[in-house]
Design a protein around this nucleic acid. Sequence first.
DNA 1: AATATAAATGAATGAACATTCATTTATATT
DNA 2: AATATAAATGAATGTTCATTCATTTATATT
Lengths: 197, 197
Amino acid sequence: MRVRDENKELSIRERAVEMLVAEGFDGLSMQKLAKVAGVSPATIYIYFKDRDDLIIQLWVGEMKRMMHATLEGFDPNMSFEEGLKVQWLNRAKFYIENPATAHFMEQIKYSPYYEKCRGKIDKKFLNAMGEFVHNAIKRKELVKLPLEIYWAIAFAPLYQLVKLHMSGRGMSGLEKFELDEKTMNQTLKLVIKALRP
Amino acid sequence: MRVRDENKELSIRERAVEMLVAEGFDGLSMQKLAKVAGVSPATIYIYFKDRDDLIIQLWVGEMKRMMHATLEGFDPNMSFEEGLKVQWLNRAKFYIENPATAHFMEQIKYSPYYEKCRGKIDKKFLNAMGEFVHNAIKRKELVKLPLEIYWAIAFAPLYQLVKLHMSGRGMSGLEKFELDEKTMNQTLKLVIKALRP
DNA sequence: AATATAAATGAATGAACATTCATTTATATT
DNA sequence: AATATAAATGAATGTTCATTCATTTATATT
C-alpha cells in the first residue's frame, strides 16, 4: 500500500495556524488552505474528519508542544520561587519563539471551539500544577488561596505582556514595546512579592 | 422623508454580539443576522457599510459603554489604592453584568479586526489612566514602573478571573467557580501588595 | 393634500464555501 | 513481477455567503 507522506500533514497544520492567525476563523477556508499547503482539498480530509476536527486537532497538537516546553526542568517539589520562575521563563520563551502558536491558542480560548478543546487538556499537567501549589502552601512559601487566584496572579500578567510584545506596541499604541529580560524579571519579582506570605 | 427606526439598529447590534459570542466569527452571517434581528438583509447595509464595518462599529459602541462604566466615580487624583479599587470593581461589575459584551471584546482582541479597532480607543481614557499612574508614582504610593507592567499586574488577573467566572468552571474544568465579592477582594489585596513600594 | 426623500424591503446575483467521488498513483507485501 | 491497499488527486456538487437593486413605504416639509 502507498504510505502517508508525513510532510503533508505537517504542512497542512503549519499553514492552517498561520492562516488562522493572519485571517481569523472566517478567513480559513479548506480550498485556500489546500492551495498554500500544496495539497488537494481532498487530501485534508484524509488527515482530518472535517473543518471543525482540523481546528480542534490543531489545538491539541500545539497545546502538547506548549506544555512540554513549559515543564522543561520543572519539578512539583521545587521551592515556590524557583518553580514559578522556571515555568514563567519557559512559557515566555515558548510564546516569544512561537508567536503564531501563542496567538492561535488565545484565539481559540474565546471562540466556541474552546468548549470542545478544554476537556482534552492533559491531566498530568493539571496534576503537576495542583501538586506544586499544594506543596508551596504547606511549606508556607505561598499564601493560602484557591488555584484560580494563584493562576490569575501568577500567569495572567505574563500573557498580557506577551500580547503587547507580539503587537510590538505599548499601551497607547504609539510607542514600541518589547518584552525583554529586564521587563520580565521586574514583573516576576512583583508577582512573587504578591504571592509570598 | 421617512425617519430611521432606532430600534432596528439596536436590534441588529444586540443580535450581532450575541451571534458572534455563540457562533464565532465564522458563524456570523448577514442573512442569519437579518432574520434574528427581524429586518431585511438590505436594511443592515443602511446602518453599516459592510460586514467588516459592522463588526468594527460593534466594538466601538461596546468599548464606549465599557469605558463609561469603568470611570464611574473615578478621578485621576484619587489615592492609588482608592483609584485602583474603584476601577477594579467597576470593571468587574460591568463584565459580570454584560457577559456577552465582555466575551465579544476579548474575541476581537485576538482577531485581525483588532488592528482596525485599536486606533479608535478614546484618548481621554488613556490620558486619565496615564495621569493616575503618574500621580501615584510621584506620591510614592506606587512602585516606579512602565505603564505596561502596571497594567499587566493590575488588570490582567481580573480578566482571567472573569474568564473563569463566565465559563462557570474552575481550573480543572470540573468544579464550579464564581467570582464573588470575597474572591475579588482577596485578589485585589494581593495586587495592591505587589504594586505598593 | 401633494411632494420629496430617505428608510425599508424581498428577491436576485455571482462568488466562495465545505465536502465528496471516481480515478490515478505509490509502495509494502507476496 | 504481480497484487493489494491506502494515499492522493482534480473536478464536481449543492449550499451558503455578502452584497445589490428595483420597488414600496412612511414621514417631514411644502
